[in-house]
Design a protein around this nucleic acid. Structure first.
Length: 493
RNA sequence: GGCGACAUAGCCAAGUGGUAAGGCAGAGGACUGCAAAUCCUCCAUUCCCCGGUUCAAAUCCGGGUGUCGCCUCCA
């Protein structure tokens, strides 16, 4: 397996610190608002990374923090006259709703900054003690000039960066790029006691403190959006390695941006789409599918047309799984009949799919720096193979074909374990039923009745009535398909 | 101003030296009462432009153009 490491700017063979175990830290959101689509991309992508590693039988420890105290939270809380910590708690709750809808699994550990103040203070003390940090008026700054490797992740030298400095420099800093590890509290702000007086952690130190606590030195994967490369991750490396004297992280993975109308989506530009607003318009599985349909390092432009197109593509895969399930059900009934007749009739083997090839190509795609776009291509290839086969099989299905059908379903299920596009039932099988789960027996019965009546009209070649019923149901969001095997109905996707 | 990324069909998108995956849209055909779904066929002699290296380049090198991003909170 190869992963692209931002630190070396190339694909490297993935070798975890401990064979068989992978330790991952992903920078989570600052909880002062609902998450937007730009937040959703790393969530979905790193969730997929985690799923894939587990699929490959790695034992994964996955940590994602919440930044639950910082300027933005304090400001927003002041605006709304709320307690900052209460505010961030409430957005953490909302985060779980949105992420859950996107089928993003909870991390093994979701550490909060406010619950790791001691660890943070200890780390800052270490940096002060070993002269990598200095104290000014209750603030503690990291001294970048004292850390030789500063700039190695973002590939910039300190002098490069000075030339482009756009903010006014705090005269108390020894270097304009020195960044705050501990921030003295202003009156009325949330604060914790520390050796330097009451204050709160700077932004970067939390991730170092918490990742080192849970994952140890030199853990495997640290992820986040590309905009975190500088300064956030650069600073994490500096402070962590200055404190421990050892390499901080083995592989740095960064996802590209979501753009809207070709422009970066960001909270400050105000052009962001909240996940929950998008989910009001599009099924969550379509959104997840859309996010995974482009390689994670490429930019991804968001617009309704592309999302709708993704939905239509996804529908194709769903249909295929549905056809497969139908054929399997038929095969099972036939199994029962054959058993009753005392024989399993072995017919000519007609459904010899290249099933193992699909698994291989899926795995090869994911092994190549998590190429989900290519892996999805394999899903489409499998769908076509299944559709062709199912169409050809007809009424009597041989034992060999039954085995192939099962195998094809297992493949869809396996691919979905990684991609997480479809929800799965308790038995682990993909749920693609177009009938909503809350569909009542009454609805089912009514539609069944209507279909029966329509079939009688069709028998009498009363096409006018038959079409009126079909059109009428379509207006209600129920799509009827007359197939050689009978009438099939589904809710409009 | 400094640094970096990207440019593949109408649209989205894989592909980093061996002769252009896949999806959406579109055209034709099979099936169907019609539709839908499905299947089959077609849909980039060519990968922004110009040079170069090579038996061979979308892929490597140089130059140009364009787009985007980072250097400030950001996923």
């Amino acid at each position: 397996m190869e992963v692209y490491n931002t630190l070396t700017r190339q694909k490297e063979t993935f070798q975890p610190r401990e064979p068989g175990n992978v330790y991952i830290y992903v920078c989570g959101p600052t909880t002062y608002n609902y998450i937007h689509l730009g937040n959703a991309r790393p969530l979905v992508f790193f969730d997929t990374v985690r799923r894939y590693l587990e699929w490959k039988d790695y034992k994964v420890l996955f940590v994602q923090n919440f930044t639950d105290i910082d300027d933005k939270i304090i400001n927003k809380a002041a605006e709304e006259k709320r307690d900052p910590l209460e505010l961030s708690r409430s957005y953490i709750n909302e985060y779980f709703k949105d992420a859950g809808a996107l089928n993003v699994r909870r991390a093994d550990i979701h550490p909060l900054v406010t619950e790791h103040i001691n660890e943070i203070i200890n780390l800052v003390e270490k940096l002060v003690d070993n002269n990598h940090a200095y104290v000014v008026d209750g603030d503690v700054y990291f001294e970048v000039r004292k850390f030789a490797g500063y700039g190695k992740l973002s590939r910039r030298t300190l002098d490069d960066m000075q030339a482009g400095t756009r903010v006014e420099v705090d005269a108390r800093k020894r270097d304009p790029l020195d960044f705050v590890l501990w921030k003295a509290a202003k009156p009325g702000e949330p604060h914790w006691e520390s050796p330097w007086g009451p204050g709160r952690p700077g932004w970067h130190i939390e991730c170092s403190a918490m990742s080192l606590k849970y994952l140890g030195i030199n853990f495997d994967i640290h992820g986040g959006g590309f905009d975190l490369v500088f300064p956030h991750h650069e600073n994490e490396i500096a402070q962590s390695e200055a404190a421990t004297g050892k390499p901080f992280v083995r592989y740095w993975l960064h996802n590209g941006f979501i753009t809207v109308n070709e422009e970066k989506m960001s909270k400050s530009l105000g052009n962001f789409f909240l996940v929950r607003d998008i989910l009001a318009q599009f099924p969550a599985e379509t959104v997840r599918f859309f996010l995974l349909s482009t390689h994670y390092r490429s930019p991804l432009d968001f617009n309704d047309e592309e999302l709708a197109a993704a939905g239509r593509g996804l529908e194709r895969i769903k249909t295929s799984i549905g056809l497969l399930a139908e054929a399997l059900a038929k095969a099972c009934r036939q199994d029962a009949r054959d058993l009753i007749a005392g024989q399993i009739i072995s017919r000519k083997h007609t459904f010899d799919m290249r099933l193992d090839e699909f698994k291989d190509s899926f795995e090869a795609a994911m092994d190549d720096d998590f190429n989900t776009a290519l892996a999805i291509g394999t899903c489409f290839d499998l769908a076509r193979e299944v559709n062709t086969a199912v169409q050809r099989l007809g009424e009597s299905i041989s034992a060999a074909d039954r085995a192939s059908l099962h195998k094809a379903m297992e493949l869809f299920t396996a691919f979905n374990e990684v991609l997480g596009i479809f929800k799965v039932g308790e038995d682990g099988a993909v749920l693609i039923s177009s009938v909503a789960e809350d569909e009542s027996d009454l609805t089912e019965g009514l539609i069944g009745l209507i279909i029966k009546v329509r079939q009688e009209s069709r028998k009498k070649k009363d096409w006018g009535t038959a079409d009126r019923i079909r059109d009428g149901l379509k207006d209600l969001g129920i799509v009827l398909e007359d197939t050689p095997q009978g009438v099939r109905w589904k809710k409009q996707g």
